[in-house]
Design a protein around this nucleic acid. Structure first.
Lengths: 331, 331
DNA sequence: CTGAAAGCGCTTACAG
DNA sequence: CTGAAAGCGCTTACAG
């Protein structure tokens, strides 16, 4: 910038004003604006983002924290968010928590050190306080996938209870009597919406209750084994609902290995759509999350906060999107 | 840092030396080191990365550019790279090119503006010159998935020709006579290794040549349609090889829709493993890429360059990893 | 309408 | 063994 200013015999101030689109506001003459713009273009001038950030405190970086970037659900969201974020002139730094509080906290620290302007977070359990701190420090934060009650943070959620209810209802309509739920419970199972929705539906319909709450485990193999034990130990089950796509995938693999026929021996529904569920013969009925809408809503909410800092401390708004039941041959 | 220095009655210089682990080198007394470290910990001091970057020109940021972060192949690589990068104290900024040169170049500019220390790139066609420029400017760059001949850039590749050859050989061993290849050809098909490997194998085995080179298209739907036309138009085909996972997925969907039985009516192999291919009944034989090794090699190569700047301008080394044929019921 | 100057928070060559 | 000072490349309050 100094070079530019010197070459054109104007001050850095003037150059900076012009380059930042404040020429009008600062009432800089047309002729100066033109020659500065022309020379900047000619020299291919690019502002040093670190100097800018150092000076302004803003970084144009957004942090994205998901459970696992290699999970198609999160990968699809990340792709959509990436797209929209770049359109707004921001960059995105991401990380996978693996549902590990320690990792999650480390990344939060990284976000702070990096001075991200805002972040979109699928939080792990136990991050409540740290996230509240961030918001308190004026960071814009939008949660998705999981949130901590009405504690003031904005969140984009999905109607997990309703989606699960609908799945059970659907299975019951098809004649299922003994429907099992195999779902993740990081927290107290009583607090997991998908489990709550399942129990409510089963109670309303007067069916037997079969809930298997699984802790999060890194390994796919352990899911295979656990699900295998559940299914082998409960031959009376005539339908099973899986609470996440990877449980559904593991479940499908187990069912196939056991030689059970879907849906005759056992009907099946999984949360989250997936190529596998669509293409498998028989196709697997799923409770699909509105991925596009989740990404769009999260970005819109974040951008609104970024544009209007007054919003940062506003009471949190929780937007709940609806799931859709995609019925296929597995039910 | 100034606060720290003032409070302890030492200079910023001393604090900086100590915090950067140069206490020994600068022969700073034990007692000063201790009190500085203690106070820094107490205050929860975190250096401002932007000031550091502004001063040193280093950013500890690595750019990761892939074709599509929501493609499981790239998502898995991204996950592994993410992990290893954080272990080394770097952050990672990523983007998806969609095989679009314009997008790719924009992101390259972004990497430059962001002053990434290095990047790992699955390049699009036409980025050769820009990448050479980056290397020329002293950036550490490692390519993977695709590279541009021996032009001096380091690359981690997979033996695409060999993997494809093996797939054809395997199909021929199982009695296939009319094997089709449906593969992406961004470039001249004559330059695509997977196509070359296929042609070589077919020629060596004296089989008929059926190659369908497809341009990259955003839409899954268009692949469904194109593949449908190919398969319907060539009933004599008894086997088909798909050049990427998403072509394989689309192909499988088409084959199922057409009611063809695998492998009796048509045998099938796809490049890249995928949950779908493993769990589908029948399981789909694949040419699997060594994802873990690709990620590890790319990171190791990049970190070596980052640690030893002398390496940056060294003649490029191309590391070629082997694929593995995972035989399942589709062949 | 335009500019001189301070300062964001660091690192490091230089001096003692 | 330690410190004063320059400077990285910007932005912006202030002055004219």
């Amino acid at each position: 910038m100094s070079d530019l200013a010197r070459k054109l015999n104007v001050s850095k101030t003037t150059v900076s004003f012009i380059l930042n689109g404040k020429a009008k506001e600062k009432r800089i003459s047309e002729s100066v604006v033109e020659k500065v713009m022309a020379e900047a273009a000619k020299l291919g001038y690019r502002p040093n983002q670190f100097a800018q950030s150092l000076r302004t405190g803003r970084t144009n970086i957004i942090g994205l924290m998901v459970e696992d970037i290699s999970n198609p659900f999160y990968a699809s969201i990340a792709k959509l968010i990436e797209e929209k974020v770049y359109q707004n002139g921001y960059k995105i730094v991401y990380c996978s928590t693996e549902n590990d509080l320690k990792r999650g906290k480390e990344f939060l620290t990284m976000f702070n050190t990096l001075s991200v302007d805002g972040c979109i977070i699928a939080p792990t359990l136990g991050m409540e306080d740290d996230i509240r701190d961030m918001i308190g420090k004026g960071k814009s934060v939008v949660l998705f996938d999981r949130f901590f009650g009405n504690d003031g943070s904005d969140a984009v959620m999905v109607d997990n209870q309703g989606g699960m209810y609908q799945a059970v209802q659907h299975l019951a309509d098809r004649g299922a009597k003994n429907i099992a739920l195999i779902a993740l419970a990081l927290d107290d199972p009583e607090k997991e919406d998908r489990i709550i929705g399942f129990k409510k539906a089963v109670a309303d319909l007067g069916l037997a209750l079969h809930v298997y709450a699984m802790p999060f485990k890194g390994g796919y193999e352990s899911y295979l084994q656990d699900i295998g034990e559940i299914l082998r130990g409960n031959p009376a089950l005539d339908a099973v609902v899986f609470g996440t796509n990877y449980l559904g995938i593991a479940g499908l693999e187990v069912i196939n290995q056991m030689g059970l026929r879907i849906p005759d021996d056992i009907a099946m529904v999984s949360f989250d759509d997936h190529d596998l569920f669509r293409i498998h013969r028989p196709g697997i009925t799923v409770v699909a999350q509105p991925i596009e809408a989740i990404a769009q809503t999260a970005i819109d909410t974040l951008m609104a906060k970024l544009r209007d800092p007054a919003q940062v401390h506003h009471a949190g708004e929780v937007i709940t999107l609806l799931t859709s039941l995609i019925v296929r041959a597995s039910t």
